[in-house]
């Protein structure tokens, strides 16, 4: 009996892409596991999985078009969709191990010590060509705009896609706005010099000099989540008056925060305003 024919990594990648798309991924890409030099040591693929060769990135599960145009901000704040992409990531990790025969590590969506992600999904998505960085921060896919991402580190040396050649940000509409108004939609909505999180400019058709206040962004994205809970609890513990403490702990802000925490992973992202006004992906999220 002859030995089975060697299966090429190209063929394995094709199988993986087909399975991922069939399972719900909108975009699939592969990054080189050794290309994560921008990540802190201890938070690179090889730190999580010995002999890591590549990182498979899946993107999808964006909010629906209807979510984006609801005037009730609490709706989108309550009904995150990132949990769907995590389910997909676990499924593809099983596929790599069971069907392709290589180690596969699903990168958990939570945080490791020091509130650092186990692996930067933004960096992984960028290195896998699933989108490009934006002035507002999130990785933007040229067709879909903002997506949620999941990553699987594997010992399979899959062919690497590498970063996108073209950046989706700034969009042509943003370049036009910069010419006429000296600002762009995301910065206009959340300006760092006027109580917001974002700053930057357009130079030579590209975004430049970006500024980002992550601490303030936390107050908006994790408004009613663990950071908000910690702030509320701190206030309650520092209040000597029993009746005042009751007002805090039974009040609507603290109560909504506790509800949000019980929704867990489906309720973490609570601010979308810089992405709501972003023209990248607007056609995809425009319906009749």
């Amino acid at each position: 009996m002859s030995a089975p024919a060697a299966v090429s990594f190209e063929s394995l990648k094709d199988q993986l892409i087909e399975y991922s798309r069939r399972s719900g991924a909108l975009v699939v890409g592969v990054a080189d596991a050794d290309a994560f030099g921008d990540a802190p040591e201890g938070f690179r693929p090889g730190d999580l999985l010995p002999q890591a060769r590549s990182v498979v990135v899946l993107g999808g599960a964006p909010p629906r078009a209807g979510d984006w145009i609801s005037p009730v901000v609490e709706l989108q704040e309550t009904m995150g969709t990132s949990d769907r992409i995590n389910t997909l990531g676990r499924k593809v990790a099983h596929f790599i191990e069971d069907r392709l025969g290589y180690y596969a590590l699903f990168v958990p969506p939570g945080v490791n010590r020091g509130e650092r992600p186990f692996l930067s999904l933004m960096l992984a998505a960028e290195l896998a060509g699933c989108g490009s960085r934006s002035l507002a921060g999130p990785i933007l896919h040229p067709t879909y705009g903002m997506l949620y991402f999941t990553a699987i580190i594997t010992t399979a040396a899959l062919p690497v896609d590498g970063p996108c050649a073209e950046s989706a940000c700034p969009a042509p509409a943003c370049r036009d706005m910069w010419q006429s108004e000296g600002t762009v939609p995301c910065v206009k909505t959340c300006p760092i010099d006027d109580g917001g999180c974002l700053g930057g400019e357009i130079a030579d058709g590209r975004f430049a000099a970006p500024r980002y206040d992550r601490a303030r962004c936390t107050t908006r994205v994790y408004n009613h989540w663990i950071p908000g809970f910690q702030k509320g609890l701190e206030l309650a513990l520092a209040t000597d008056d029993k009746e005042k403490r009751k007002m805090i702990l039974y009040g609507s802000a603290f109560t909504r925060t506790l509800w949000s925490i019980t929704y867990s992973a489906s309720n973490q992202a609570q601010c979308f305003e810089c992405m709501r006004v972003c023209p990248v992906g607007l056609e995809y999220r425009t319906k009749k």
Partner: peptide, 11 residues
Amino acid sequence: RAIEFKRKACR
């Protein structure tokens, strides 16, 4: 302020 910001921006 974050709550007010989001309500206003979304609306």
